Amino acid sequence: MPVLLVIPARYASTRYPGKPLVELTGATGEARSLIRRSWDAGMSVSGIDRVVVATDDDRIRSAAEAFGAEVVMTSSDCVNGTERCAEVAAKLGDAYEIVVNLQGDAPLTPAWFVEDLVAGLRADGAAEVATPVLRCDADALNGFQEDRENGRVGGTTATFDVNGRALYFSKEVIPYTGRRFEEGELCPVFHHVGVYAYRRDTLLKYPDWPMRDLERWEGLEQLRFMEHGHAVKCVEVEGRGQKFWELNNPVDVARLEGIFKAQGIA
């Protein structure tokens, strides 16, 4: 069951234009662009047959090709990363049965998140799309709450049933807890990690489904599957002591660089 990993990257981000080309400094003092760090994360995953960057912007293409990435140009009409992945899957033919979407703003995604995700999709024959969820520690949950209190849109949280089927995803913190948590407490909130594994046949149908209200209001592409009656499998992954954070806003640059330095990531 061959696997294609796609890293969607667009320049015209509403919240952070030019985000893929933002330079992030690691523990050794070396600065690498966000798209380079995302590529490095994708290349570290085992069991992947091919890794490509998908973009509609020549600046991103040039930057990616300069460090050796394979780039597939896609339409500027793609409204999200899943549509961009669908276009890549159609262009590259039917050689790949599973397509992974490693979004280009999550360079701290550990390889085992993606490996566990692909294994989870393979193990559940009824699942058409799967995505990882990570139980928040107190620091991560308090960071989400701080973002919301200051009017920033931070990470996404997820709720799911006893079979791992998603109930809802939101940029608000769900479920509501009403308080801050202390270090070492078991938090009831799960951070949705922005990675997806799709069965190719389902992915190719996605662009033809109209966007509905939940996806439009939340700005979360995975809700389109749910609004059209397709279950999303949540695969719980373990942090193993590694901090995870995405680059959503300019303030996150310092957060990511702090994690790189604390964890010795070059």
Rank of each mutant, 00 (worst) to 15 (best):
V162Y: 10
L223K: 06
K91I: 07
C136E: 06
A127D: 04
R135P: 09
E215V: 04
Q222G: 13
P188L: 12
R122W: 03
W217D: 14
V162Q: 15
V133T: 10
A95R: 15
G143M: 04
E215Q: 15
L141N: 04
C187F: 02
T156N: 06
L92V: 15
D208N: 12
A138E: 08
R135T: 04
D137L: 04
G184H: 11
F190Q: 03
A111V: 05
W209V: 02
W209C: 08
T157S: 15
F181I: 03
E218T: 06
I98K: 04
L108S: 04
W217G: 02
K171F: 03
L121Q: 10
A123H: 07
G143W: 01
T159E: 15
R135E: 11
D161T: 07
E182L: 13
L214P: 00
A127S: 13
D147F: 00
T177Y: 11
K91M: 14
V173Q: 09
D213A: 15
L204K: 08
R165K: 14
H192P: 00
Q222D: 09
E185W: 07
E97D: 15
E185C: 10
A197R: 06
R199Y: 13
A158H: 01
P110D: 10
G143Q: 05
A158P: 00
A197H: 05
A127F: 04
L141Q: 03
K91D: 11
E97V: 01
L204W: 08
T131Q: 13
G151Y: 03
R148Q: 13
P110M: 10
N142I: 03
L223V: 05
L203P: 03
F160I: 02
A166H: 02
R179L: 09
G154C: 05
L203A: 09
T202A: 14
E183P: 07
D208M: 09
R200A: 10
R200Y: 11
G93L: 11
I98P: 02
Q222H: 11
Y176D: 15
G151E: 05
A111P: 04
F144I: 00
E172V: 00
I98M: 11
T156A: 13
E185K: 10
E149G: 03
D137E: 11
G219T: 07
V133K: 01
W217L: 14
G93N: 12
R216Y: 12
D105A: 08
E146T: 12
